[in-house]
Write a protein that binds this DNA or RNA. Sequence first.
DNA 1: ACGCGTGTTACTGT
DNA 2: GACAGTAACACGCG
Length: 258
Amino acid sequence: MPELPDLQVFSQNLQKKLAGKKVKKVVIGNAKKLKASANMLKKSLEKQVVKKVYREGKELHFQFGNGDVLGLHLMLKGRLYLFEGKNEQKYTIIELQFDDGTGLALTDFQGQATPTLNPEEREAPDALSTAVNYSFLKKALQTKATIKNLLLDQHVIRGIGNAYADEILWKAGISPFSIANKIPDNKIKSLASAIKSVLKNAEKQIRKSDPDIISGEVRDFLDIHNSKKKSSPTGATIEHAVVGSRKTYYTKEQELYK
DNA sequence: ACGCGTGTTACTGT
DNA sequence: GACAGTAACACGCG
């Protein structure tokens, strides 16, 4: 449920809180979704110092002194908790205990959050990378998929989720039902800049309202994908529909290309 | 109370 | 066969 801007803020806060800590013990609570054996994880991470925490697409990456990287994907309901002493959280997937008596726990009642040891590099660029520009999108949009589904496709661009796809499409003035290869060049340009501005602005809002956040999500400032709002900032009624089995919020201000 | 929400995967359909 | 669309996962929250 947290999307790119949330994860971006989490990663910065985790970097502040965890960098320099040494892992004493790795505890696996639920191995179902592990993308590495429990033993490999323990062997790789125990006695290692956290060097860097950063975001990659929708994953958090923890880089250790030996160069190994622990990737955590929170999926829909994954949550992170810092604890002192004993981890009391239910549904723990994985837990890092540090040698100063603190620890980090990843929980998920749905058991879907996924720890990966040394995640493979992906070809699709991160939504905030400079590679996501007009000419990239021009190529990526040469398909008859609906634009909303395309924005959500992590094999095309990494990091955009359901809520921010709606925000971005509204900002760009493109209907979510538009067919990607029917969108004109000037609108592809709007889309490129909307991706950056919507995501960066969200990051700023989240940091302002919730400076220490490492879990959950902040959504109340969203302009369109927001059940509390009836109309867009420019006064159009917000409509709802299902696209790709996801609830989609949009207004008639957005142009439909079919 | 009870239906909604969320990302990915595996499946279905075109 | 390639590409696009969608149900299911499962349960806390409002």
